[in-house]
Design a binder for these strands. Structure first.
Lengths: 188, 188, 188, 188
DNA sequence: GATGAATGAGGGTTCATTCAT
DNA sequence: CATGAATGAACCCTCATTCAT
């Protein structure tokens, strides 16, 4: 009988959303610090939440990661909605995201056949399609460039960044950006 | 504590080299199938060898991987010694290697600070330097291309291949090759 | 990797304290029987508890031992609080503890630089200081006796007992007690 | 068929004694550096000898240790044969031995029931008996002191030294010596 | 609904001892 | 006789997942 003492107060149903948010925030930090394979127990601990609650809200690692990375994709989608945005801007944003945390790419790759992961990937492709059409019609990139090329370039760069030492990421990102700029001939 | 019961026959020292070769072959297969982080016990099992023997021959994962991948690098070195070889050939060979197994890149990246890994990396850089000088003087690539650019391109592509589904690797490799060819302007 | 099949019933959090106590009791027995270096897996097995639970409660051997031996030190501290107690009583008690189990000394010595071990040692020194001052002012021991002498004597005796055959411990203890009594001149 | 190369020359029977000596010397060093429980493989390696040869010469750890420590006991025996030697000298010598290497005590204690260990212990007792008779008849120690007292004192001190940090051994030895001097009243 | 303890398989590593050559 | 490789049990520790309360 738990007559004892300092167990965290059971706040009842109202704690649900708060815990969920805490878990997402904690996961974002833990994934950024320790990578996508970090122990889920570390996430629960950082969120100040029981492991059971973590599993209730997110039945597996992917469910948790999808919640975390939904924001990143949303950011990309917001970008393409602003009229002036270019492929170059997209590279910038994705690079910035990858420099900050690397776990999205790891997940997209390590669980690439999971339906939820596929869905995130689809949204990224849609973003690329949109921006590519705009850049082509503006003459900023060659007509021969396909969405799959851009997707591959983005993937390779983000993957590379995800494996680089953090302090080397900015210079690696710059060099990679230059290579792909040349390949896609943004400037003309 | 002592154990023995009805153990496998002890073949004596003469089994050493054979076991060593069996371990390297088993590691090559296991790394190709399950990636660089595959359990070493799986390597010992597949080689038909006790775990202790694995550790005698190769005190850690990197020592084993170095033995496995030494061949790959040697192949690259042989390539650059043939006079007519070009950067394009190097891409072809590395791509072919990465399509086959993937673990070399993983090791170069995940243990990038280990001295033995650094040594393998150095050999790759030397290969790139040689071939780059040759291609530049032949006018096959632009003067602005640096060895670090090539190294990054190769790394990104190999890393990407290492994470791709095996059946998609050939088409991914072709697409990547095309992107970097454009970037480095091989053709003019 | 997930495992479960027909596992032992999960009794939930309420089993925590009971398991903790079972672990301490099991460790006390195992340490007494097999010494301080006994396998921790034996402790878990005797406690009827998974290895993981052992590690959850006590992240390493020292944490477990500290829990086990806290009682011993507490007993010493209780002794010195009773006004009439003498150095001779302290020897008696420590000897009795060492005759029963032996692992405390082994730990104090084998992990002497660990902070938790140092802490236990400090508590023993405090006990000695208290009792030494009392005995000196009562004229029961010579003024030249230092705390370090007593500590060394106690350590040597307890260590010796810890290495003796159990059935010889009482006579060894008596002989050692006599030697140190003579050395410290209790009687005059 | 070992047609191959740099295997150590098989010198035939003549290598026997040389290997034996090399093993003893190596064991002395290894035991001094790493304690009595050091891996036997380390001894063979340091001796430049196969493990099989080690086991041929010394079928177990104790056989090897007996060979190593025979010298120590012989030194004690030589001491008591010089007419003027006293118990105090014996303490000095044993202390010096224990400060240098600690493994003899560990063996005498950890394998105390092995016949060979018993034999070494017997020789030490004989040394004590001789010197005790001499000191008593010279009036250097009290008539009440028994050989078992001296044996215990020596054991406790040597054991303690064997567990102390090397740099603290000299001061610990001095303090212990003083305690036992007082206990046995050497000076009067 | 939340809690958080328990589980236990699995991987890495070490080392005493054996034995074909 | 020496060699030195092989064996493999045993230990340590981690972590994904479950479930009584």
């Amino acid at each position: 009988m738990p007559t004892n003492s300092e167990a965290k107060a059971n706040l009842g149903p109202s704690a649900g959303p708060a815990n969920r948010r805490a878990l997402i925030a904690a996961a974002r930090e833990v994934f950024a610090e320790s990578g996508f394979q970090a122990p889920l127990s570390a996430v629960a601990r950082r969120a100040g939440v029981g492991q059971g609650s973590l599993y209730r809200h997110f039945p597996d690692r992917i469910a948790l990661a999808v919640a975390v990375f939904d924001d990143n994709i949303t950011e990309l989608e917001a970008l393409v909605e602003s009229d002036g945005s270019t492929l170059s801007d997209l590279f910038d944003l994705i690079t910035a995201q990858a420099i900050g945390s690397t776990a999205l790419v790891d997940m997209l790759i390590s669980d690439r056949h999971d339906a939820r992961t596929v869905h995130l990937g689809t949204r990224v492709v849609a973003v690329i399609d949109t921006i590519l059409a705009r850049d082509k019609s503006a003459g900023r990139i060659g007509a021969g460039v396909e969405a799959a090329d851009v997707m591959l370039a983005i993937s390779m760069l983000a993957l590379m960044l995800s494996k680089s030492d953090p302090e080397e990421r900015p210079s690696t990102a710059a060099r990679g950006r230059a290579i792909f700029r040349a390949a896609f001939s943004y400037q003309r």
